[in-house]
Amino acid sequence: MRDMQRNIYLIYIIRTIRTFLLLVPILVPFFQENGLTQTQIYLVQSIYAIVIVILEIPSGYFADYFGRKYSMLFGVTFSTIGCAIYSVAYGFAAILPGAITLGVAYSFISGADSALAYDSLLAMSEQKEYRKFEAYSYSLTGISEAVASILGGFLALISLRAPVYAQTIVYLSLIPLVILLKEPPRTKREIKNPFREILNISKYALIDHQEIRWLIFYSATLGTLTYTMVWLTQPYYQLLNIPLGWFGVLWAIQLGFMAIFARAANYYEMRMGKKNAFVSFTVIGVISYMVMGIVPSLITLPFILGFYFVRGVHTPIFQDYVNAIVSSEIRATVLSVKNLAQKLQYAILGPMIGVVVDMYSIQMALVFSGIIYGVMGGVTLWRMYKLEML
């Protein structure tokens, strides 16, 4: 039991360090300085997402079969390599291998850390604490990103490569921490045909089990809604003529609010009820897109917090719902299916939104995003309501 409790503490630390993202607040200017257009930036991110789409389920299966710890170790090692590639790259062709490597890294960590945490709590008969674990974890990661954003912004004033060098060191520090994790006891299925088993689990999650399917689809839509705004935020700052030195500070403020929102996730759903909470996520996201797109100004900039509310609150709630339904031996694979759905959506929609930015404007891209995600969210909510899930 002591090892299981230590796992929880270690995952808090690993997630906090892993989200100490010095590079993210200035990533778009970094790409631009290295010769990428907005369309190429979205293309890099879409290829990154496609890599995740290809590997997400196999990596989840790897975690279920060979161990979540080994999957995470593989992931943090590739994170270090991918960031090291960025640190010396110039131009689309040189940056792309770094994005691909980081996509591989994300795939092997995604789902494995959540599955290991849930099974550690299960081993201690404390699985009911999982939502609190996710909410607290998300709060910690928000604070970590906020602090890193400020530091990354200041490092960027020295050089746009300085945050990349520092990020490589941060990722490198994760390797010994992952090695300290202990695999929790769990049931392992006897596997004769791994490929068929992956297909069977995917079919179970996306076709056979209606509740899991629509939870996955809606979570994917909300995740893509907020992730799209990540790549529109820095061009929006540029539109408003905000100095580069303020990028990290503003990013930190946004993430600080997300940390607060995440801590309130359980309370929010209890007060609002499941149906109203679920509906509010799409409504808040769409309103934020529309207001910022139609009236771009410093006065409407606070509407960006709507995306961080959705991101901070919906993630622990949906993770808990899916974990509670899925059995231990396929948990990491099903969570990978959920993450795959989001990356697949972004891989399709990201380049489209990038083209709108380059051909028209950032304002048009924001309005376009609001319409797209409003329709997708509305259709998914309607299906969930018809199935009496809300």
Rank of each mutant, 00 (worst) to 15 (best):
F74R: 03
D113W: 10
R161T: 10
L305F: 15
A324R: 15
L22I: 07
L298M: 14
L174E: 02
V88D: 07
K128A: 14
S327E: 14
R2T: 11
M1S: 14
I207G: 07
G273D: 00
V170C: 06
F368Y: 12
I150F: 13
Q238Y: 03
M124W: 04
L151K: 04
V310M: 08
K338I: 08
M72P: 00
V310I: 12
L140Y: 15
L23F: 15
L177M: 12
L225K: 07
L232Y: 03
G248V: 04
I8Y: 07
N266L: 12
A277M: 13
G142T: 04
G377P: 00
A156K: 02
R161P: 02
R189P: 05
T333N: 06
V313W: 12
Q167C: 09
M270G: 10
I85E: 02
F318A: 12
V313N: 11
Y204C: 03
F318W: 11
V104P: 01
N193L: 06
N276R: 15
L222M: 15
Y268A: 15
W231S: 07
L239R: 13
L172C: 09
Y138A: 08
I284C: 06
I348F: 11
T221M: 13
Y308F: 15
V178M: 10
S114L: 11
T233Y: 13
M72G: 04
R189Q: 13
S71N: 08
V279M: 13
R196L: 14
E56C: 05
I158T: 13
R189H: 10
V322R: 04
I13Q: 05
A205I: 01
T300G: 09
R2Q: 10
F309E: 00
V375E: 09
L157G: 11
L177E: 04
I52M: 13
T187C: 05
L151Q: 05
G60P: 03
Y138N: 13
V28D: 00
V367H: 03
L157T: 14
K132P: 02
L232S: 01
L36I: 06
A93E: 14
I57R: 05
V147H: 05
M352T: 10
I41Q: 06
M352F: 14
V375I: 15
Y48F: 15
E190L: 12
Y61A: 11
I100W: 03
L298R: 09
I95S: 03
Y171E: 07
I150T: 12
I362T: 12
N266H: 13
I198D: 00
Y360H: 12
